[in-house]
Design a protein around this nucleic acid. Structure first.
Length: 935
DNA sequence: GTCATCACG
DNA sequence: GACGTACGTGATGACC
């Protein structure tokens, strides 16, 4: 088909794909010869995802465009163009030609022109396509290409899956696509080393261009500019600005040795594509593509097996039809014999819900070998016709639950048989309510977490897709969604077998994938000392729960309601009309449009992606100096938060059987090694405000018992002082000084006995800022001081504690080289974005600085928790909650002191013997009948 | 489902 | 020299 009206051209920015692929993946090598192929692998995955995503779309033509040659006409204009680019990494260079071959293997046009940048080729093609009456989508997030948008041309940020149209360009540059180059010419570009006008950024540039209409007009009338500095800059740098425009202006006249018609979409040739993938030794993606094309996957020769790795035959494809339904004792016995012979089993339970404390067991699935899995239905309901509520009768063809569990119990408790699960804590909690105990376990979710924290999530669906190239049957397809959703016991047996047994099969395969990687990646110790042993500890804590007094909450809730109603009346009076106080959108319109309040600092009030006014607490706090309304809103919001999230919601979570609240800890949720608490979140119960703290009065001990709270004092700062080797801080900690006051004293030279609360407050903010990867901007905002003043503090801090800067620099350098950072206990946290360019790099940098500190603290308290059950076994005490640096216990009144002593010792010594801190870890303790009193 | 907001360490 | 920025989480209500 000749390109013309109705055609849709996709132009993929090949270099962007390559770099993203390179940075997103660990440095993989081809097994047979060590050729680096990480970027090629990622590139192929991205192409494959692109192809899958566009199946059935209206795209008629497509090309991947690459740069070629390092010298372009822009270098003739300006020899420093792109002169500040880092050298291409050593292991990426040989992969570049392979990405061209990959593109061709996918049968996608692959185009480059000697001494032209990809951007110019893209520009030329986009212009041609537009003139021919077709539509164009440029797949890239490079802002240099935004000048092309409009008239049927859009960009697609594949990363965020976001279309950038004329509006998107205006959001980014403050001007339409036709004036983007003018703004760029003024603002310059540090990435490409385009000089621009000194002191003028995008914001100012857009302002000027909008005022004068065009760059040429602006330069000609530069004398008219009011601000003297700006005027002088534009007059002095006119040539440089005009040069910059030539540099950023894309060339729509690139001589091409092909036409649009050559870019027609073509189906890949299976042999060519799979041949290439086999040559690269990409097993996973080969399989996936072969599946799609409906052909046999190519045989990729196995590398010579390691001496200590068992020689494993290639696993059969995942086939839900092949699973067995176990309906009688004799069949179950056959499976148990297989398990005993094998020494391990993957296990998964099916239940009526997600809450382990409330749901009922429905069935159990087992897998012993890849492809060899079964499902034991135990409590499925009979299918009843035209019965809206379903029948209460049991379905035929199921084993008696007691009999089945009786047979399985010895297997689960046998420590010579390894039980493998995906998030096994869930299954352990459910089955423990049926009298089953577990010994000897492995968890694929935690294996993945120990290996790959920071790279991706660790849910089974994601892992299966990523590592097995298999998309598991969706639970939705069995249960439906929304109102008509049914529970698993209503799923027909035949469907249940496929779904449930597949989960066990996948779990087993994941285990086979991950387990050998532990040693290679050197995280065996992390997994075996920080992850696996925590499972039963958390399971026990969650099952124990904490007593919450419903009446207390209910009384508070009513009190909040009344106060809110009063505030609402006041608010309506101040605003002049009724509105939804809970709607930030309506509030913003009232404050800024109807009442025309302006920010005290003179800044424009608008912000936010959706274009709505920001009405966050910081904004309202500032506005409170001008008007009474913002303060009332703040008060109302505080009450609303406390009522809806705590006093109301918490009551819903009180378990009717136990009268207690049972949270669920997610062990692989936070990248740094911290736990996360959900359903409900008991790690964010209010404490900072007086009103909020009263919520903790509802968390109480049973009659005759008390709650004991122990928390690490300043653990993250101590760890920072240790890893950065800051002697002044170390000495202050050793002497038991007030660390923020000591910091202030060091920084400002104020003697401790003359310290004012305000100076101490500032030092405290800096101390915390450092842990978070400080910036002048962030500190300024936090302290509400001018930015240069904040920067002055930071400079002085680094001057006084040079070790901190060294630590930060070394940590970032380590992350850039290895793609991860580590805690003192060896936990790895991957930082895939660290080498990215753009604003994402800042985030990644700060996260990389923070992760070893936050992660080490998380490791310390994990170690304490793991040792705690044995340490307190003889005491009438139970561990209830963990809140990052705090552990909460419930103990018989008369044993509180002994518990405090024992638990404190465990916590303070938790790092030993693996790590000996140069600074003492100090644990503060409190006791009381409620959490409020114990804290 | 996403965004804004706000609770915690 | 400008850009956009504090680190890590989860729950809620509004709004599309």
């Amino acid at each position: 088909m000749a390109f013309g009206k109705g055609c849709h051209l996709h132009l993929i920015d090949g270099s962007a794909f390559i770099f993203r692929a390179y940075h997103a993946l660990p440095p993989l090598t081809r097994k047979s010869d060590g050729l680096p192929i990480g970027a090629v692998s990622g590139f192929c995955n991205m192409l494959q995802r692109y192809v899958e995503g566009n199946a059935g779309s209206d795209v008629t033509h497509v090309a991947v465009i690459f740069d070629k040659g390092s010298h372009t006409f822009r270098n003739d204009l300006y020899d420093l163009y792109k002169a500040n680019r880092d050298e291409m990494p050593e292991d990426l260079r040989p992969q570049i030609p392979l990405t061209r071959r990959a593109t061709e293997a996918f049968n996608i046009a692959c185009k480059e022109i000697e001494n032209y940048e990809a951007d110019d080729i893209i520009a030329t093609l986009a212009c041609q396509a537009r003139e021919a009456g077709g539509r164009v989508t440029i797949i890239s997030s490079d802002k240099d290409l935004m000048q092309l948008v409009g008239d049927g041309v859009v960009m697609l940020d594949a990363m965020k899956n976001k279309v950038i149209d004329v509006e998107g360009v205006e959001e980014k540059f403050g001007v339409g696509p036709d004036r983007v180059v003018d703004v760029q010419a003024l603002a310059g570009d540090s990435v490409d080393n385009v000089p621009g006008a000194p002191g003028i950024g995008i914001k100012t540039a857009a302002l000027l261009i909008n005022e004068y209409g065009s760059l040429e007009e602006l330069l000609d009338r530069a004398e008219d500019i009011k601000q003297p500095k700006r005027r002088q800059t534009l007059i002095d740098h006119r040539e440089q600005i005009e040069l910059s425009k030539k540099l950023v202006q894309l060339d729509c006249e690139t001589p091409l040795d092909f036409t649009l018609d050559d870019l027609e979409v073509r189906e890949p040739e299976p042999d060519t594509l799979l041949g290439f993938l086999a040559e690269m030794e990409f097993r996973t993606i080969s399989k996936r593509i072969a599946d799609r094309l409906g052909v046999e996957p190519p045989v990729v020769p196995e590398p010579t097996p390691d001496a200590d790795a068992p020689d494993r035959p290639e696993a059969p494809a995942i086939d839900p039809e092949a699973y067995e339904c176990v309906a009688d004792a004799a069949t179950l016995q056959v499976w148990i014999d297989r398990i005993r012979a094998r020494g391990h089993v993957a296990i998964d339970t099916e239940t009526t819900g997600l809450n382990e404390m409330l749901c009922d067991l429905v069935g159990i699935s087992l897998a012993v070998e890849p492809g060899q899995a079964c499902y034991i239905p135990l409590a499925h309901r009979a299918e009843a016709e035209d019965d809206l509520f379903g029948s209460d009768a049991m379905a035929e063809g199921q084993m008696d639950m007691e009999e089945a569990l009786g047979m399985l119990q010895p297997v689960l408790a046998d420590d010579s048989i390894l039980k493998i699960g995906q998030n096994l804590k869930y299954d352990m909690k459910v089955l423990s309510r049926y009298g089953c105990q577990f010994a000897s376990i492995d968890d694929t979710m935690l294996l993945s977490y120990a290996l790959n924290a920071g790279l991706h999530n660790h849910g089974m669906d994601a892992l299966s897709e990523r590592y097995l190239s298999h998309r598991p049957i969706e639970i939705k397809s069995l249960l439906g969604t929304g109102k008509s959703q049914k529970t698993f016991d209503r799923v027909p047996l035949a469907d249940a077998v496929k779904y449930a047994a597949e989960d066990a099969d996948i779990t087993l395969r994941l285990w086979q994938t991950f387990r050998p990687q532990l040693h290679q990646t050197r995280v065996t110790t992390v997994y075996e000392t920080l992850e696996r042993p925590l499972i039963p500890v958390l399971a026990q804590m969650e099952r124990t729960g904490i007593k919450v007094d419903r009446d207390t909450l209910s009384r508070m809730s009513n009190a909040f309601s009344q106060k809110m109603a009063g505030l609402e009346e006041e608010i309506y009076g101040l605003a002049g009309r009724k509105f939804n106080v809970g709607s930030p959108k309506q509030l913003g319109e009232i404050l800024f449009d109807e009442m025309s309040l302006s920010m005290p600092d003179g800044k424009a009030p608008k912000k936010g992606k959706t274009g709505a006014y920001g009405t966050g607490a910081d904004v309202l706090e500032d506005l409170a100096t001008l008007h009474d309304l913002p303060r009332r809103i703040l008060d109302w919001r505080q009450l609303s938060k406390l009522k809806s999230t705590y006093t109301d919601a918490l009551q819903e979570h009180i378990n009717p059987d136990t009268g207690r609240v049972h949270t669920s800890y997610s062990q692989a949720g936070a990248n740094t090694g911290r736990l996360a608490s959900t359903d409900p979140n008991l790690q964010n119960i209010p404490v900072r405000s007086e009103e909020g703290r009263r919520i903790r009065e509802a968390f109480v001990a049973e009659e005759g018992k008390v709650l004991v709270s122990l928390d690490y004092s300043q653990i993250e700062l101590r760890i920072l002082a240790h890893v950065a080797g800051i002697e002044a801080l170390r000495d202050a900690f050793r002497d038991g000084q007030d660390i923020h006051a000591a910091t202030a004293s060091e920084m400002f030279g104020v003697p401790l006995d003359e310290m004012t609360p305000d100076v101490r407050r500032q030092a405290k903010a800096i101390n915390f800022g450092v842990i978070y990867g400080i910036s002048g901007f962030g500190l300024a905002r936090n302290l509400r001081i001018p930015r240069d003043e904040a920067q002055g503090f930071i400079d002085r801090y680094f001057e006084r504690f040079p070790g901190i800067r060294t630590y930060m620099d070394e940590t970032v350098a380590f992350a850039k080289e290895h793609g991860f950072v580590q805690t003192l206990f060896g936990r790895k946290i991957h930082t895939p974005e660290i080498n990215a360019k753009g604003p994402g790099a800042g985030f990644a940098r700060r996260a990389a600085i923070n992760a070893p500190i936050q992660g080490t603290a998380a490791d310390v308290i994990r170690r304490a928790m793991i040792r705690m059950p044995d340490a307190i076994a003889e005491l009438p005490a139970r561990m209830l909650l963990q809140v990052h640096d705090e552990l909460l216990f419930e103990v018989d009144e008369d044993a509180a002191d002994r518990l405090t002593e024992v638990a404190r010792e465990v916590m303070e010594q938790a790092s030993l013997p693996a790590v000996r801190f140069s600074i003492p870890m100090i644990v503060d303790a409190g006791t009381g009948s409620s959490w409020a009193a114990a804290h």
